[in-house]
Amino acid sequence: MRDLSGKTIAIVATNGFEQSELEVPHKTLKDAGATVHIISLEAGEIKGWDKTDWGNAVKVDRTVDQVSADDYDAIVLPGGQINPDLLRVETSVLDLIKAFWTQKKVVAAICHAPWLLVETGIVKGRKVTSYPSVKTDVINAGGLWEDSTVVTDQGLITSRNPDDLPAFCDKIAGEILEGRHERRAA
């Protein structure tokens, strides 16, 4: 993993995030030297979903209303079925994601989290992958869906599932180190 010292990354999630899709990027990016904050709707803890049942709780570092895209280099959106479905109706979360995009910062989403990219309009005209059940939603929102492990398009990083986490985390690091991204059409 590349050195991310001096970089700050937001991981936005709520109850029902897929355990590995939050914990692996959190640990990997921290181990690379980044400051990583878990951001959620409320203070305290959020509980993960671990494949077939509730998983472990993780401490929330900040709430959505306490942060700004100005303070971060990238935003990471874990999937799971529950987490992005709950977050995609939260205007404050969608506004935060859009702020990262508008500021040409890295936006990374895995598994079902591209639902959040659909809600924000970010997928339109962009190359994207996702968990297969989200494919039709991405296409209907104007996304150019690909059946690939990880897809990168001008600082937008998407990945299919937890099996792809090492490649997903590596792409996040690479895109952060590239700096701000022009948002030309795919």
Rank of each mutant, 00 (worst) to 15 (best):
G143H: 02
A185I: 11
V123W: 00
H26R: 15
I46K: 01
G179T: 11
D147S: 11
D95F: 02
A141L: 03
G155K: 08
D95I: 01
A109G: 04
N83G: 04
V64S: 05
L4Y: 01
T63Q: 13
K47T: 13
H26T: 09
C111K: 02
S159F: 07
T8V: 12
T136W: 08
P78V: 07
G174F: 05
A57G: 03
Q154R: 15
T35E: 15
L86C: 07
L177R: 07
E23D: 15
K51E: 11
L87M: 11
D137Y: 11
L177H: 09
I176C: 09
K171N: 10
L96D: 05
L117S: 07
K27M: 13
I39D: 01
L156P: 02
V64A: 06
V36Y: 12
G44N: 06
D61W: 08
L77G: 07
A34S: 14
V64I: 15
N15F: 06
Q66D: 11
A113M: 12
L94R: 04
R183K: 15
T8W: 05
T14Y: 04
V134C: 10
D163W: 05
L94D: 06
P166C: 03
V106Q: 00
G55K: 07
E178W: 00
P25K: 02
D70I: 11
E45K: 08
A13R: 00
L86T: 09
A10Y: 03
V150I: 05
A34P: 13
G33P: 10
G143S: 07
G6W: 10
W101A: 09
T63Y: 11
A167P: 05
W49A: 00
L87I: 07
R88F: 07
T129N: 00
L77I: 10
Y72A: 09
K47N: 04
T52F: 13
D163S: 11
R88V: 06
G33C: 11
L156K: 01
K135D: 08
V93Y: 02
G33D: 13
K135R: 15
K124L: 02
G55N: 10
K105G: 09
K30C: 12
L117T: 06
D163N: 12
A185M: 07
D95T: 14
F17T: 10
Q103H: 12
L94P: 04
R180V: 15
V67E: 00
D71K: 10
E90H: 14
P25C: 05
T35Y: 10
V58A: 03
Q66Y: 05
W101F: 11
L29R: 04
T152M: 06
I9R: 01
R160F: 02
G16L: 06
I11P: 03
A34G: 14
D170Q: 13
P166G: 00
E119G: 06
V123S: 05
A109W: 03
T149E: 15
G179N: 08
G174T: 13
D137S: 15
A57F: 05
G174L: 09
A69K: 03
T102H: 11
F100Y: 06
V150Y: 01
P78F: 08
G48H: 01
T28N: 14
